[in-house]
């Protein structure tokens, strides 16, 4: 049983093949969330939609930022800005493992040549008050995806359970394309009239953001923004469900959650600036988690959250 799929030739082709594959499996092709997040899980299409009883199936690319991982574009594997491919299906289908393996075939990983393994790795997000059980998926000893059955999000039990797949796109693509340094990876088709590699697109931004993240970002301003986002989140959720203007029941779970995301990213920036001590760290994480829980509480009271209108 050999896969005859032709090898992809560029980073974007891998993304396109994943899109095509998951669209064919019936997922809604979402777009990236328009805010700075640390991982694809933060997208409301995952965090909020994994809550409540409504069925859901979505897939999307999510640009993700981890300021502490910045290496000025010099490290072959580490970036402060990178892409995750995220799939979330609720309830998790019984053949999710097979569907996942199908996606690997789609991007040119031949199961007759490679060693694919599901190695225990329980997932937990202290900032989202979320956890699940699953694996990291190894291809020839390299972690290529995270595979999780969500058990709790924002402090709520997930009923039904969502299956979540997260692919670290750069790492996966480097492996499939046989590239050693991320900046050397073809971004578009190498035979295109204007071939671009990852470095052409991102080397300069990695440098700029590394400098800003580590040394320049104004910590006083960031600290204030954190407080403001926290306050705004709470203020939004403190509003009455009934909108006095329209008379409709409008619980503003998503605008509140935006503020939670904002607080979380600001915390990451402060962490990269090295102004958060070990003890303070836990306190900040706890504050973000409290917001995430409140947002989850609000969302499950909405229609999308499974509450009958």
């Amino acid at each position: 049983m050999t896969d005859k799929t032709e090898k992809p030739r560029s980073f974007q082709e891998i993304i396109l093949r994943l899109q095509t594959y998951w669209a064919a499996q019936g997922c809604a092709m979402m777009q990236p969330y328009d805010m700075e997040v640390g991982a694809g899980t933060f997208h409301p299409a995952t965090t909020l939609r994994s809550l409540g009883s409504n069925p859901w199936a979505a897939a999307y690319v999510q640009p993700s930022r981890r300021p502490t991982d910045g290496r000025y574009g010099e490290n072959p594997n580490r970036l402060q800005h990178y892409y995750q491919y995220q799939v979330l299906i609720k309830p998790s289908p019984p053949d999710l493992q097979d569907l996942y393996l199908g996606s690997l075939r789609a991007i040119g990983i031949d199961m007759a040549l490679h060693d694919i393994r599901f190695v225990e790795d329980d997932w937990e997000s202290p900032t989202l008050g979320a956890w699940g059980l699953g694996w990291e998926v190894w291809c020839d000893g390299m972690e290529v995806s995270q595979f999780t059955y969500f058990q709790q999000v924002g402090g709520h039990d997930c009923v039904p359970v969502s299956g979540e797949l997260t692919y670290g796109l750069e790492r996966l693509a480097m492996y499939v394309l046989g590239i050693d340094h991320v900046m050397d990876m073809p971004f578009n088709d190498p035979a295109a009239p204007i071939p671009l590699c990852y470095g052409d697109v991102f080397r300069q931004t990695e440098e700029e953001y590394s400098r800003w993240n580590f040394d320049v970002a104004n910590t006083e301003v960031l600290l204030r923004h954190f407080e403001e986002a926290e306050a705004e989140c709470q203020a939004i959720l403190a509003q009455e469900a009934e909108d006095p203007k329209t008379g409709k029941r409008i619980i503003m779970a998503h605008p509140a959650y935006d503020q939670c995301i904002k607080a979380s990213h600001i915390f990451n920036l402060l962490d990269a600036r090295g102004v958060i001590s070990v003890t303070e760290r836990q306190a900040y994480i706890g504050r973000v988690r409290a917001l995430a829980k409140k947002c989850a509480d609000a969302f499950v009271r909405t229609e999308a959250g499974g509450q009958a209108a």
Binding site: T2, P76, N77, A112, L113, H114, D115, I116, R117, C139, D140, G141, M142, Y175, D180
Partner: peptide, 22 residues
């Protein structure tokens, strides 16, 4: 490894070596 391959593990070994090098 958990699998026998047509190339007698050459691809698998090369992949593992690469990860190890990193």
């Amino acid at each position: 490894a958990n699998v026998e391959t047509a190339d007698h593990g050459a691809t698998i070994l090369a992949g593992n070596q690469k990860v190890l090098a990193a």
